[in-house]
Simulated scan of single mutants.
Amino acid sequence: MLIFLPPSEGKTAPDPDGTARLDLDSLILPELAEQRRTAVDALIRVSRQSDAQEILKVGAKVMGEVERNQQLWEAPAAPAHDVYTGVLFEALGAPDLSATALGRAAEKVLVFSGLFGATSFTDRIPAYRLSMGVDLSPAAGDGPGRLGGYWRGALAEPLRERVGDQLVLDCRSSGYAAAYRPHPEQTLVVNSFTEREGTRKVVTHFAKHARGELTGMVLRAEQMPETVDQVAELAAERWDVEVRPAAGRTPHQLDLIAAG
């Protein structure tokens, strides 16, 4: 089984005294090196423009992170699970993973991103600011354009081969899920709801936390689940669980339900 995660908006910049720098050839799926180089160079150019805030669709409070984009080739790099520090990754608890669980994560987890397409859990990357919904074509020369479509084309063949016939536990948000969709019959999408007096609602913060927590449970399991039923059985240790089977183009759905 593979696990697909989104990146986090919140990132922790690696130690500036570290010696590691971004090395595209060292990342998982090295055949994407040229596409990644195009995206990195375009982001650097855009981040230097006066209209960078508008193009990157960010608020004024994070313009410091946009300025940091300008030095991506020189910036220190660290394992992705140390750089991504948002709600999902906090709930996953990467610092507390055993050596066995971390080895599983390195092999089984793919983190999708607007900058790199997809990286492994342990690939060394710099902190950056870029979402999948951005169009990097304005004034960026030969930039990649709309990142969703750019990565959808680039990732199709490499991920088809990597996924093979494995089940994919899909914890991504919709914007990142659009970059690559495995066959519905081998995809289990994780949803999270709070329920109160029979009414269910989605709270984004809680949904991210639940997906991270479930990912951590899967990685720490004595034996990693490989089927929809096995994942649901594991999740039932923490939540009320409902499974909706795949139908047509709609993947299997795993609903995690917590009291509101």
Rank of each mutant, 00 (worst) to 15 (best):
A78Y: 06
E161C: 06
T215Y: 11
D23C: 08
E195Q: 11
H252V: 01
Q223V: 15
A139W: 01
Q53G: 03
Y180A: 12
R244K: 14
L256N: 03
L29W: 06
L5T: 08
G212P: 09
P251N: 10
G141P: 00
G143R: 01
P95S: 08
E197R: 13
Q35R: 13
A207I: 05
R124T: 14
A232T: 11
R238E: 10
G64F: 00
P30V: 03
Q53D: 00
R37P: 05
P144E: 09
P6C: 13
V40W: 00
I257A: 00
R146M: 13
E54W: 05
G164A: 06
W151C: 01
L234P: 03
T100S: 12
S137M: 04
K208F: 03
D123S: 04
P79Q: 03
P144S: 10
L56W: 04
L88C: 15
L167S: 03
T122E: 12
H209W: 13
P30G: 11
R160V: 03
S26T: 12
G143K: 09
H205Q: 12
A94P: 04
P158V: 01
G18H: 02
R45N: 09
A80W: 08
A42I: 07
T215R: 11
A77Q: 07
A154Q: 13
E226I: 07
G93S: 01
R21P: 05
I44D: 02
T250K: 15
L92R: 09
R172V: 05
D170Y: 02
L56A: 00
V228I: 13
L219R: 11
P182D: 03
V228D: 03
G117C: 07
V46Q: 01
A221D: 04
Q223G: 11
A42V: 00
L24C: 06
E65M: 02
P76N: 08
A179R: 02
E74A: 15
Q53W: 01
R152P: 05
R181Q: 15
A178Q: 14
A127V: 05
R181A: 15
V62H: 02
L169M: 04
F89N: 02
A139S: 09
I3E: 06
T227K: 08
L24E: 09
V218K: 07
V58Q: 05
R162P: 01
E157R: 12
S8R: 08
E195D: 10
C171G: 11
L254H: 10
S174P: 00
Y150V: 10
G133H: 10
I55P: 00
T250A: 14
Q53H: 01
P158F: 11
S98M: 11
V168C: 09
V231M: 09
N191Q: 14
R36P: 07
P225M: 06
A52R: 03
L88I: 12
T194M: 03
R249A: 15
W151V: 04
D15A: 00
A154T: 14
G59V: 02
D51Y: 00
V134M: 04
D51T: 04
L188G: 06
G103K: 12
L24G: 05
Y128K: 06
G198S: 11
P245L: 01
A39N: 08
G141M: 00
W151S: 07
G212I: 03
A236K: 13
R200S: 04
G145N: 08
W73A: 06
D142A: 14
A77D: 09
F116T: 07
